[in-house]
Design a protein around this nucleic acid. Structure first.
Lengths: 237, 237
DNA sequence: GTCCGTTGGTCTGATAGCGTACCGACGTTG
DNA sequence: CAACGTCGGTACGCTATCAGACCAACGGAC
């Protein structure tokens, strides 16, 4: 396992980590499959492992006591979990799970904590925490003021940023949870985007057809938190 | 100015700061009035000062390119700004300004950075950043799934937590911005709460009449992020 | 090939909240 | 006390979205 080379890694945070920090944790990084639904962190439980995805998309969801839920952020190879540990919080109240299958590296929490003693490594990950928090803020804004179709477009763009091709494997049901709307509303909104030739939609699959037109469509909803990520961390795509 | 005693301070974060850190910054703390509307931090600008409110309420607002806006969090003597600096991010994209007038301590950013070299002090403030981020997440959830009157109740409770008496000085106009709804919707929702004898409402003023009934009313919307704050930092009220 | 679970499409009626406009009440200023 | 700006209350029509139900199409399992 000690044979992981930094330049073969695709996770942005691992790549940007100071060389000494990376070399210290590299022997402990475990390459793992992350099938759809894999739980990376459970609400209010101290996670045993940190995850740095290489591919796929994870979703961060907040739940209310009565079981209402809404997505507050996503990450793929641009991010990691748990940021709670980076911020000395041990756990957070979210469910974090894979939404689009992928692979990644897993690290024992203790090893992460050791690495965080290095200030440069810590700063990288606190900056990422900030970027994620900003993503949540703009999700909140979007939930409050934008229409379903714009939010859907925003969401597809965010997934597209974290995916290699133009195909994103997702069901309407899943999307409806992510956007906190009814499932039939997703169907309708997808039809609208498809009618404008921005995407193709197949069973269990969304295919981006015209990314820049999609950005135009999502206009006011997309872009701010991506700019912030690039300022704090580096290129997103 | 070097005469500020730790036990006369009411800001929770200053109180919980390690003694050495507090004594290092104390000579640089400047007691300031914070009238309504005072801007504590402007979007994408590196703030020159940190603020630790002693009273009053500050609001954190995200704006979209087209000028839509929504509140993502509030703080009073339970918090501080800028958390961006704590997280090595220099600036954040939010507007942060006083919403209910108060007082507080101001500290030059450079002094804050010096204090953050102490790991215990840094950890306290990163935990606060986490608490604030969680507050944003639950605001997002609430925006997505709760009705206006519940969100209003939640919001009044959050302000009440950060206020000394039962009176909160706010206009409907202001509230409508905070909740990202129409101003008349606020009027209607306030009438509903008033009809249930949970609050009194006067021109420019909301008075909490029956806090625990208000909590019952807000049920699913209120409580989670407060619990998280208490776990990470300490008692909120 | 048949079956059944999953996924997607569509309908009907209900409603929460919006946009806009208008007006009255308050209260501060001069 | 006169005047004007701020603030709150109300009304009307509109529409995005919801709630719930139902059925068709697909596709893996046997």
């Amino acid at each position: 396992m000690g044979d992981i080379q930094k330049d073969t890694v695709r996770n942005s945070l691992l790549r940007l980590m100071p060389r000494e920090s990376f070399e210290a944790i590299a022997p402990h990084l475990e390459h793992v499959d992350l099938p759809r639904g894999t739980e990376l962190s459970a609400p209010n439980e101290t996670p045993l492992h940190a995850y740095f995805p290489e591919s796929g998309i994870a979703s961060i969801v907040a739940r209310s006591p009565q079981g209402q839920h809404a997505e507050i952020g996503i990450f793929g190879r641009d991010g990691m979990t748990p940021t709670a540990m980076v911020l000395d919080a041990e756990s957070d109240p979210y469910s974090i799970f894979m939404q689009v299958e992928g692979r990644g590296y897993r690290l024992a929490s203790d090893q992460l904590k050791l690495a965080l003693k290095d200030r440069a490594c810590l700063n990288l990950l606190t900056r990422y925490s900030q970027a994620l928090s900003v993503q949540g803020a703009y999700t909140s804004l979007s939930n409050a003021v934008h229409h379903i179709d714009e939010r859907l477009a925003r969401w597809i763009l965010m997934c597209h940023d974290r995916t290699d091709g133009d195909e994103i494997s997702l069901t309407h049901e899943f999307l409806s949870i992510m956007l906190a709307v009814r499932r039939p509303s997703v169907t309708t909104a997808l039809h609208l985007l498809e009618g404008r030739k921005l995407i193709y939609s197949e069973r269990g699959m969304i295919i981006v057809r015209d990314r820049s037109a999609l950005e135009d469509f999502a206009k006011d909803a997309y872009g701010e938190c991506e700019r912030e990520y690039e300022r704090l961390i580096g290129p997103l795509r």
